[in-house]
Amino acid sequence: MAHARFPVEVVTPEGEAFAEEVEMVSTRTAVGTIGILARHEPLLGLLEPTELRLYRSEEEIVRFAQAEGYIQFQDNRALLLVEEAIAPEALDRDELQSRLTEARSALERAPEGSEQQARARREIRRCEAFLAIEP
Protein backbone atom coordinates (compact mmCIF):
# COMPACT_ATOMS: atom_id res chain seq x y z
CA MET A 1 0.00 0.00 0.00
CA ALA A 2 1.28 3.39 -0.91
CA HIS A 3 1.86 5.78 1.94
CA ALA A 4 1.01 9.46 2.00
CA ARG A 5 3.82 11.67 0.77
CA PHE A 6 5.37 14.65 2.49
CA PRO A 7 8.06 17.16 1.50
CA VAL A 8 11.65 16.57 2.59
CA GLU A 9 14.57 18.91 2.30
CA VAL A 10 18.16 17.84 2.84
CA VAL A 11 20.32 20.93 3.25
CA THR A 12 24.11 21.00 3.54
CA PRO A 13 26.50 23.96 3.82
CA GLU A 14 27.26 23.46 0.12
CA GLY A 15 23.61 23.83 -0.83
CA GLU A 16 20.48 21.74 -1.14
CA ALA A 17 21.13 18.04 -1.71
CA PHE A 18 17.54 16.87 -2.02
CA ALA A 19 14.10 18.47 -2.06
CA GLU A 20 11.21 16.23 -3.06
CA GLU A 21 8.13 14.54 -1.70
CA VAL A 22 8.74 11.11 -0.25
CA GLU A 23 6.81 8.39 1.55
CA MET A 24 9.34 7.70 4.26
CA VAL A 25 12.64 8.93 5.63
CA SER A 26 14.91 6.47 7.39
CA THR A 27 17.89 7.68 9.37
CA ARG A 28 19.53 7.47 12.76
CA THR A 29 19.33 9.92 15.64
CA ALA A 30 21.38 9.96 18.81
CA VAL A 31 18.64 7.82 20.35
CA GLY A 32 18.39 5.22 17.61
CA THR A 33 17.24 4.41 14.11
CA ILE A 34 14.01 6.12 13.12
CA GLY A 35 11.65 5.96 10.19
CA ILE A 36 9.50 8.99 9.61
CA LEU A 37 6.18 8.84 7.80
CA ALA A 38 3.80 11.64 6.94
CA ARG A 39 2.12 13.38 9.89
CA HIS A 40 4.86 12.44 12.31
CA GLU A 41 4.73 14.39 15.53
CA PRO A 42 6.92 17.53 15.74
CA LEU A 43 10.50 16.49 16.32
CA LEU A 44 13.93 18.03 16.75
CA GLY A 45 16.73 15.51 16.85
CA LEU A 46 20.45 15.02 16.53
CA LEU A 47 21.49 12.94 13.55
CA GLU A 48 24.39 10.54 13.69
CA PRO A 49 26.50 9.53 10.69
CA THR A 50 24.68 6.75 8.85
CA GLU A 51 23.03 5.80 5.59
CA LEU A 52 20.12 8.11 4.93
CA ARG A 53 17.31 6.52 2.95
CA LEU A 54 14.59 8.53 1.26
CA TYR A 55 11.76 6.37 -0.03
CA ARG A 56 10.15 7.88 -3.09
CA SER A 57 8.15 4.65 -3.13
CA GLU A 58 8.55 1.13 -1.80
CA GLU A 59 11.04 0.28 -4.55
CA GLU A 60 12.58 3.60 -5.39
CA ILE A 61 15.02 4.62 -2.68
CA VAL A 62 17.44 7.53 -2.77
CA ARG A 63 20.45 6.92 -0.55
CA PHE A 64 23.03 9.28 0.90
CA ALA A 65 25.99 8.92 3.22
CA GLN A 66 24.88 11.35 5.87
CA ALA A 67 27.27 12.98 8.32
CA GLU A 68 26.27 14.51 11.64
CA GLY A 69 23.39 16.94 11.64
CA TYR A 70 19.90 17.72 12.78
CA ILE A 71 16.40 16.75 11.83
CA GLN A 72 13.36 18.87 12.29
CA PHE A 73 9.84 17.69 11.58
CA GLN A 74 7.13 20.29 11.76
CA ASP A 75 3.89 21.04 9.93
CA ASN A 76 4.25 17.80 8.00
CA ARG A 77 7.60 18.81 6.50
CA ALA A 78 10.97 17.31 7.24
CA LEU A 79 14.13 19.38 7.23
CA LEU A 80 17.45 17.60 7.53
CA LEU A 81 20.49 19.76 8.16
CA VAL A 82 23.60 17.69 7.62
CA GLU A 83 27.25 18.55 7.27
CA GLU A 84 27.60 16.23 4.32
CA ALA A 85 25.24 14.29 2.09
CA ILE A 86 27.24 12.22 -0.35
CA ALA A 87 25.93 9.77 -2.92
CA PRO A 88 27.16 6.29 -1.86
CA GLU A 89 28.98 5.72 -5.16
CA ALA A 90 30.88 9.00 -4.71
CA LEU A 91 32.44 8.00 -1.39
CA ASP A 92 36.23 7.95 -1.45
CA ARG A 93 36.90 4.78 0.51
CA ASP A 94 40.69 5.06 0.50
CA GLU A 95 40.46 8.52 1.96
CA LEU A 96 37.98 7.39 4.61
CA GLN A 97 40.27 4.51 5.53
CA SER A 98 43.28 6.79 5.95
CA ARG A 99 41.21 9.28 7.94
CA LEU A 100 40.03 6.48 10.17
CA THR A 101 43.60 5.39 10.85
CA GLU A 102 44.57 8.98 11.55
CA ALA A 103 41.64 9.53 13.91
CA ARG A 104 42.44 6.31 15.79
CA SER A 105 46.01 7.39 16.40
CA ALA A 106 44.78 10.87 17.40
CA LEU A 107 42.48 9.21 19.91
CA GLU A 108 45.41 7.35 21.47
CA ARG A 109 47.41 10.55 21.79
CA ALA A 110 44.55 12.65 23.18
CA PRO A 111 44.44 13.22 26.92
CA GLU A 112 41.56 11.59 28.76
CA GLY A 113 38.43 13.74 28.90
CA SER A 114 39.73 16.40 26.48
CA GLU A 115 37.83 17.97 23.62
CA GLN A 116 40.46 16.50 21.31
CA GLN A 117 39.44 13.03 22.43
CA ALA A 118 35.74 13.72 21.87
CA ARG A 119 36.47 15.04 18.37
CA ALA A 120 38.55 11.99 17.45
CA ARG A 121 35.72 9.68 18.59
CA ARG A 122 33.24 11.53 16.41
CA GLU A 123 35.55 11.31 13.41
CA ILE A 124 35.95 7.57 13.95
CA ARG A 125 32.19 7.11 14.13
CA ARG A 126 31.74 9.04 10.90
CA CYS A 127 34.38 7.08 8.99
CA GLU A 128 33.11 3.73 10.25
CA ALA A 129 29.52 4.59 9.36
CA PHE A 130 30.49 5.71 5.86
CA LEU A 131 32.67 2.65 5.25
CA ALA A 132 29.77 0.39 6.22
CA ILE A 133 27.59 1.82 3.47
CA GLU A 134 27.35 -0.35 0.37
CA PRO A 135 28.36 1.42 -2.81
Binding site: P13, T29, A30, V31, I34, E41, P42, L43, L44, G45, L46, E68, Y70, Q74, D75, E83
Partner: peptide, 29 residues
Protein backbone atom coordinates in the same frame (compact mmCIF):
# COMPACT_ATOMS: atom_id res chain seq x y z
CA UNK B 1 2.69 32.20 12.15
CA UNK B 2 3.65 28.68 12.99
CA UNK B 3 4.10 29.34 16.64
CA UNK B 4 0.74 31.02 17.13
CA UNK B 5 0.04 28.06 19.34
CA UNK B 6 3.22 26.51 20.68
CA UNK B 7 3.46 22.98 19.33
CA UNK B 8 4.89 20.44 21.71
CA UNK B 9 8.08 19.20 20.14
CA UNK B 10 9.66 15.85 20.75
CA UNK B 11 13.38 16.23 21.40
CA UNK B 12 15.76 13.40 20.67
CA UNK B 13 17.84 13.54 22.82
CA UNK B 14 17.46 16.29 25.43
CA UNK B 15 17.38 19.90 24.08
CA UNK B 16 20.43 20.76 26.19
CA UNK B 17 22.44 18.03 24.44
CA UNK B 18 21.28 19.27 21.06
CA UNK B 19 22.25 22.81 22.01
CA UNK B 20 25.71 21.68 23.08
CA UNK B 21 26.28 20.33 19.57
CA UNK B 22 24.66 23.27 17.78
CA UNK B 23 27.04 25.87 19.22
CA UNK B 24 30.24 24.32 17.78
CA UNK B 25 28.41 23.90 14.49
CA UNK B 26 27.65 27.60 14.59
CA UNK B 27 31.41 28.23 14.86
CA UNK B 28 32.09 25.89 11.93
CA UNK B 29 29.53 27.72 9.83
Amino acid sequence: QQDGRPTPVDYEPDPAVILARLVPDYVEV
